[in-house]
Design a protein around this nucleic acid. Structure first.
Lengths: 213, 213
DNA sequence: TGTAAAAGCGAACGATCGTGCTATTCTGCC
DNA sequence: GGCAGAATAGCACGATCGTTCGCTTTTACA
C-alpha cells in the first residue's frame, strides 16, 4: 500500500475512535492531526473537506463492520445460527477496543437525525442495508423451517436493533452492569418466540401460539 | 415574574428547542442570542458559564417533562391506566412542538455518554429518577392485581424505554412511517404479557377484562 | 418620582475552527 | 541515482467560539 493510503487509514482509524466517543462533528482536524503526529494541513489534504472526512469515517467503519460482523456471520449455516451470529458479532463489535465510545453508527444516528446532507444520507443508506441484512437472515430462518412462518422479519430485525439501542443507553450512560444480561435475555426471548414450537411441548398442541416477547 | 427570569426562560425555551435538534454542545451562545434578539453578553449574563447553561437547559426540560408527562399521569388511577398514561404522555411529549428534534434526553444521552462532568451527572440522575418512576408505576399495577406478581418492574421499565429509543431511531433517522405503529404494537404486547391472565379467556366470560384502551 | 439595583449592550480577548496557498520533503519508478 | 509526482509542513485568512469588562438603559421599589 502506498504511503498516502497508509497514513490516510491511520487518520481514519483515529477518527473513527474519536467519533465513537465525541461524535462526528466534534472531531476536529487539528485535534486529529495532533493525535496522529501530523500537521493540520497534512491531514486535511487527504480529504477535500470536513464533510467528506466524516463520510470517509463512516465508510471506514462500515468496512470494518462488514469484515468483523457480517462476513463471519455469513459463513455460519443458514437459519437461526446465522441470525445469532449477526446479533452477537454486532454486540461484540460495539464493545470493540477500536470503538471506545461504542457503536459509532448509533452515536452518529442521534447526531445526524436532524441534520440533512450527504453525511446523513450515507448513514441512512447503510442503516437500511444493515436492517435488510438482518431481516433477510430472519427470512432465511423461516424458509429453513426454524422460525415460524408468521414471523414478521422486519419487525424482528427492528426488535434486535431496539435491544442494542437500549443496551447502549443503559450501559454507556447509566453504567448499568445489568444491561448486558438484559440485552441477551431479551434477545433469547425474541428468538424463542420466533422458533417453531416443539410439537412435544404440550401434547397435541393448537395452532399459532402467537405471543411475542 | 421579574424581567430577568422572564427573558431567562425565553432563552432556555429556545435553547431546549435547539438542543433537541443539534445537541447540547452545538447550541452556541451567539446563535442563541440571535434567536431571541439579544446580545451575546446579554444572554451569557444569565448563566455563569456554558456548562451551567447546559445544565439549566436540562433542568428546564425536566420541569416541562414533569408538568406534561409525570404530573398528569399521576392523576390517573393507580395501576395499568397510570402506566399507560406515563408511556403515552412520554411518547406525545417527545413529539411536542417545543422539541423539534424529539426527546431532548435521548439526544443528550448519546451525546454525553462518554463525556464525564456535571452535565452528564445531572442527566444520569434524572434518567434514574424517571426509570424509578416508571418501575414504581409498574409495581403499583402489580400490587393492584392488574399485572402478574412475577412481573419484573425494572425490566418492564427498561423495555418501555427501549421502545422509545427504537421509535426515535427509526422515525427520526430512517423516517420510517411504520415506526409509530410498531412502537405501540410493542407496547401493547408488553402490557398484554404483563397482565394477569383472564381466567375466562376461552370460556363463558368472567371478571375483570381489563379495559382495552 | 427618585434612585439603587438589575438587565442588557458593545467591544475586545485569546483560542480554535475549516480551508486555502506555497514551499519543502519524501517515495517510488526509470 | 536522478526525477516527477505524491505527501506533508508552514503560514495565514476569516469566522466563530466562550468569556470578560465597562458602560448604558431599564426595572422595581421607597
Amino acid at each position: 500500500m502506498s504511503k498516502g493510503r497508509q497514513t490516510r487509514e491511520a487518520v481514519l482509524d483515529a477518527a473513527v475512535a474519536a467519533a465513537s466517543t465525541s461524535g462526528l462533528a466534534a472531531v476536529s482536524i487539528g485535534e486529529l492531526a495532533r493525535k496522529v503526529g501530523m500537521s493540520k494541513s497534512g491531514v486535511f489534504a487527504h480529504f477535500e473537506s470536513k464533510e467528506n472526512l466524516q463520510i470517509e469515517v463512516l465508510r471506514s467503519a462500515v468496512s470494518h463492520f462488514i469484515a468483523e460482523v457480517v462476513g463471519p456471520a455469513l459463513k455460519k449455516p443458514r437459519g437461526e445460527a446465522r441470525v445469532r451470529a449477526l446479533f452477537e458479532n454486532w454486540f461484540d463489535w460495539s464493545g470493540n477496543a477500536s470503538l471506545p465510545g461504542g457503536c459509532i453508527f448509533i452515536a452518529a444516528a442521534s447526531e445526524l437525525d436532524d441534520k440533512p446532507g450527504p453525511v446523513r444520507d450515507y448513514l441512512v443508506s447503510t442503516q437500511k442495508e444493515w436492517l435488510a441484512t438482518l431481516s433477510q437472515a430472519v427470512r432465511i430462518a423461516v424458509d429453513e423451517g426454524q422460525f415460524r412462518s408468521d414471523v414478521d422479519a422486519q419487525q424482528l430485525a427492528h426488535d434486535f436493533y431496539s435491544i442494542l439501542l437500549a443496551y447502549h443507553h443503559f450501559s454507556r450512560l447509566l453504567q448499568m452492569p445489568a444491561a448486558r444480561v438484559r440485552a441477551f435475555r431479551s434477545f433469547e426471548q425474541l428468538i424463542e418466540s420466533a422458533r417453531v414450537k416443539d410439537s412435544s411441548s404440550r401434547g397435541s398442541n393448537g395452532r399459532k401460539p402467537a405471543a411475542r416477547k
